[in-house]
């Protein structure tokens, strides 16, 4: 089952915003297939009613007081920006709709 098609790899690359090359599609399709086959071993464990572990520490309710902390200056915030205009991050035109 874990074999993965070229089309599926292309779909994953689109979801992950990776403009992969045609050549990479082939390489990744075979490599991902092998890796997925190997990790699919986890499916052999009978774990029906075992609770999943999402966190390695048994902590709950870690909250912060609602107090303002100094952040970055506008200059610091924008310093690493590839492009700036009117003190905002300038980015290429956006095609999709807001979520």
């Amino acid at each position: 089952m874990p074999a993965i098609s070229r089309d599926e790899v292309a779909h994953l690359a689109r979801l992950a915003r990776l403009a992969v090359t045609e050549e990479e599609l082939d390489t990744f399709a075979s490599q991902l297939g092998v890796i997925l086959e190997s990790v699919a071993k986890v499916g052999e464990v009978a774990a029906g009613d075992i609770p999943p572990t999402s966190h390695a520490v048994p902590l709950t309710n870690v909250f912060r007081a609602d107090e303002v902390r100094p952040g970055l200056t506008q200059r610091e915030a924008l310093a690493a920006a590839p492009a700036v205009e009117e003190n905002r991050f300038r980015v290429p035109r956006i095609l999709g709709e807001e979520q």
């Binding site: 990790v39 986890v42 774990a47 609770p51 999943p52 572990t53």
Partner: peptide
């Protein structure tokens, strides 16, 4: 099958 199961294995 993948992420969910992996987290259960993590518990085990």
């Amino acid at each position: 099958a993948y992420y969910g199961q992996a987290q259960k294995v993590r518990t085990l």
